[in-house]
Design a protein around this nucleic acid. Sequence first.
RNA 1: GCCGCCUUAGCUCAGUCGGCCAGAGCGUCUCACUCGUAAUGAGAAGGUCGAGGGUUCGAUUCCCUCAGGCGGCUCCA
Length: 685
Amino acid sequence: MSEQRPASAAPAPRVVVTAGTTAGAAVREAGLPGKGPDAVVVVRDPNGQLRDLSWSPEADVEVEAVAADTDDGRGVIRHSCAHVLAQAVQQQFPDAKLGIGPPVKDGFYYDFDVDKPFTPEDLQALEKRMKQIIKGAQRFSRRVVPSVDDAKKELAAEPYKLELVDIKSSDNTVDTSEVMEVGAGELTIYDNLDPRSGEQVWGDLCRGPHVPTTKHIPAFKLTRVAAAYWRGSEHNPQLQRIYGTAWESNEALDRHLELLAEAERRDHRKLGAELDLFSFPDEIGPGLAVWHPKGGIIRRAMEDYSRRRHEEADYEFVYTPHVTKGQLFETSGHLQWYKDGMYPGIHMDAEHDAEGNVRKPGQDYYLKPMNCPMHMMIFKSRGRSYRELPLRLFEFGTVYRYEKSGVVHGLTRSRGFTQDDSHIFCAPDQLADELTNLLQFVVGLLTDYGLTDFTADLSTRPEKFVGEPESWTVAEAALEQALKSAGLPYKIDAGAGAFYAPKIDIHVTDAIGRAWQLSTLQVDLQFGDRFDLEFQDSDGERKRPWIIHRALFGSIERFFGILTEHYAGAFPAWLAPVQVVGIPIADEHAEHLRGVAKSLRAKGIRVEVDTGDDRMQKKIRNHTTQKVPFMLLAGGKDVEAGAVSFRFRDGTQVNGVPVDRAVAAIDEWITRRENASPSADAFTF
RNA sequence: GCCGCCUUAGCUCAGUCGGCCAGAGCGUCUCACUCGUAAUGAGAAGGUCGAGGGUUCGAUUCCCUCAGGCGGCUCCA
């Protein structure tokens, strides 16, 4: 989900805080807003650190005022809201122990150790309490705890907080920056003070900063409960996590909730059923899709176009089997490294004598989780010359991965899927150019499908890796160079590489601002040696090729799911399963439309004539819901004039268009693979 | 794999605090209607209430196990 645009794009105002006075006073004196969506909630000091408005520096300092409607401002509101949630939970469930409660993208959460998981009714009750707390205008008050022992004494009833204090005091190697509880240098507690009596109502170990009072949390909503492992490890106990969201105004909250509703409407699992594209029959198994005819047409159109582009870019097409002997995956390393993610082996060919003794041991076959080992076999099938390089092998290769039951999710995370997989074998001096071209190819192809907003991650050597660190460095540098030449914005994701290769991941942002990881490019460091691959160079020496793994869609199923959501099911006309529907006003006009359909079909256009006995209005409704891009109506006037009337899925219409011009316009629109949804104002006949 | 929730007709969902033939809308089928830009009318068919086991005189309803789904966590070659 995307962060909403800050309301004010103007640079943050700066104010000078005089020594001994508070940031809040300076902000007030400068006349900056103290309430409303652009209220200043914290300030940023010259070191970039966010500070409470009650912060009082020892020397004069210029700070930046941080408004509620900025990313940082929302983060502070959300974090404060998490505190309010925790206070409400401990009011309602006094035995609840606190975990952590940080802001996250678009919201916040807080983890609790409770005997019974929270119910939806609990959430309602908690929201009510939170509203009371917020109304009570409690002050967030920062207090430095003098020593670790003091902190432990004060937090004696909070075992998880004690653990955090221990980690902080005993082990500086643990990165606690993600944990909002403990800051750098000193331990602090934020007290919630009653505004009248000044009495401490609640408190939490926290590095801050916070909004001045709970009243500065203008709008929030608790969204769901879920379990989460303490400190993210499955070896730790599970806590109950409550998720919520908080915003600078009710309007911003509503916009966010509307975005969530829109995402739900676009959910490819829902649209997949409504548009009759695919299904996941229980009888087949979780994460294994069957493609219905309409989904099949879209998929084939996607694949056909991709094939054509690959042909133009000098790829060679190969096919490989879905199962193989275990030995191949031992050579590749999969069985040693990722057996858990593979379907269990199929034991084959064992023979026993009459007594049951093994006469022939047999062996295990495995469903392939990746295509690469097969492509290595193709390279190895004969001697290779430098003249053949770069050799680009391409396959729509279906792979099977044993995804854990809890992670299977429609087409975007399934157990059987098809990679548009390619392995490029090149000489070391070809690597950099090949990567650069490849990046341009990726972005070009994705753009043709209507995706326009890209970023990249360069994922470097992980903790668990194979190979020599030096070759990792070389490969990482080549990838980074390619990113620079392609001019793609990127960031480095340290330690996120695959165990055998550093990689570039391409992310796209969809129509409603969500980022999806799609393509991946990896410089392989292993397979050359593991499979003993060689080519003979111009100097007569046998050398190892470098191998680039790459998938553009990643998985066709997943890409299909993403495109479905990007277009909200209204696919571009060139991909739409039914591109044109003819709707006769009455039965007697059907014949005319059949003639039109025939001309369209002759151009390869997918067209139907709806001769059912629904009324014309009902047919329009049906085909609009089915997101058909072109509806052609014909009644007496059209038949007489040798014309048709266009109705588009957005409701616009153009009447009385001569048939040959209508056919030509539709054909032209589809042939140029226009991704926009056709509409009356896009056509002049 | 872990935690919670869910599973009633093809779809979306009522309902049964344990009790006669389990309901609606949409869809499907049949008949009538032949209509100018988002739902014509009438009728019919369709469910061992996810599966198995238990408690009970009686289970779709309560309990257990399993399967599948949903939301997270962990994982993601």
